[in-house]
C-alpha cells in the first residue's frame, strides 16, 4: 500500500459520474440504513421529540450511533452539554477516517471537499476507500454514497416516527449484519500481503479490549490508531 501512494499528490476528479456511482453502489447498504432509521424514528417519538425535530436531527447530524445514544439521554430538563459532548466523543472516530482519505482529497477544491466530508460515515468512508483501493479516483463518490445513505436515514426517520411501534426489529431479518458483511468484503480488498498481518492483529486485539472496557465507539479509534502506528513504526525500523 505505501508503494501505490505516490510521493506526488494523487490525481483526483470530482464529477457527476462519481456522485452517481457512489449513489448507485451504496443503495444496498442504504436499505439497511433505512431499516435502522425506522427504529430511530420510533425511539425518537417515544423520547418525545416532535416529528420535525427527529427529521432535523437526522438531516443535520447524520450520524446513527450518536443519535441512538443521545435518545437515551433525552430526559427533562435536557442535559444539553452532556448530549453534545457525548455526540462529539462517539464521532471522534471520523477524525481517523478523514485522515486516511486525505491523500486522495488533498487536491480537491475546498467547497467539494468540505461538502463531501459532511457525508462521511463508517459506511460511506469504507465504500469510498474501496473505490480508491481499486484505483478509481473520483472524489465525488463519497458525496454520492453519503447522499444515498442520508436519503435512507432521513426518510426512515420520518416513516418510523409516523408508523410508531409497528416497526420490526431489523435484527430479526439479519439486517444488522449488512454493515458487517460490507465491512468484511471491503476488508478483503484491503489485504495486501503478510506485512498487514501484525498491524491487523494489533488492531483487532486493541479494538476487542477497548470494546469491553470503554463505552461508545472508542474501540474503532483506538484499534485503528494502534494497528496503523505499529505498521508505520515497523516499516520505519
Amino acid at each position: 500500500m505505501p508503494d501505490d501512494l505516490k510521493p506526488e499528490p494523487t490525481e483526483i476528479e470530482f464529477s457527476r459520474a462519481g456522485i452517481l456511482a457512489g449513489f448507485r453502489l451504496s443503495l444496498p447498504v442504504a436499505l439497511s440504513v433505512f431499516a435502522y432509521g425506522l427504529v430511530f424514528g420510533v425511539l425518537a417519538r417515544q423520547a418525545n421529540l416532535s416529528l420535525l425535530e427527529a427529521v432535523l436531527m437526522s438531516v443535520l447530524v447524520n450520524a446513527g450511533a450518536a443519535q441512538f445514544t443521545v435518545l437515551g439521554l433525552w430526559t427533562h430538563p435536557l442535559p444539553v452539554l452532556t448530549i453534545i459532548l457525548t455526540t462529539f466523543i462517539i464521532n471522534l472516530r471520523h477524525i481517523l477516517m478523514g485522515a486516511s482519505i486525505y491523500p486522495y482529497f488533498r487536491k480537491l477544491k475546498a467547497l467539494p471537499r468540505n461538502l463531501s466530508l459532511f457525508y462521511l460515515s463508517d459506511e460511506s468512508w469504507a465504500l469510498t476507500m474501496g473505490q480508491f483501493q481499486q484505483g478509481k479516483r473520483n472524489g465525488a463518490f463519497l458525496l454520492g454514497s453519503g447522499l444515498a445513505l442520508a436519503v435512507g436515514w432521513v426518510g426512515a426517520a420520518a416513516v418510523g416516527y409516523l408508523l410508531g411501534s409497528v416497526v420490526d426489529d431489523p435484527r430479526r431479518w439479519g439486517l444488522d449484519f449488512a454493515f458487517l458483511a460490507v465491512f468484511i468484503a471491503l476488508l478483503v480488498a484491503q489485504w495486501k500481503g503478510r506485512k498487514d498481518a501484525l498491524p491487523w492483529i494489533v488492531a483487532a486485539v486493541v479494538a476487542v479490549a477497548a470494546s469491553y472496557w470503554l463505552p461508545g465507539k472508542w474501540y474503532i479509534l483506538l484499534g485503528g490508531l494502534a494497528g496503523s502506528l505499529v505498521g508505520a513504526w515497523r516499516n520505519d525500523s
Binding site: M1, P2, L5, P7, R93, L96, M97, A99, S100, Y102, P103, D122, A126, M129, Q133, L180, F183, I184, L186, L187, Q190, W191, K192, D196, P199, W200, V202, A203, A204, V206, A207, V208, A210, S211, Y219, I220, L221, L222, G223, G224, A226, G227, S228, L229, G231, A232, N235, D236
Partner: peptide
Amino acid sequence: EIWLGYLPGTILISLVVP
C-alpha cells in the same frame, strides 16, 4: 504516508472484529 496507508485496513478490522 506509510502510516496513512495502514489506516483503512486497521480501522475496518476494528469495526468488524468486536
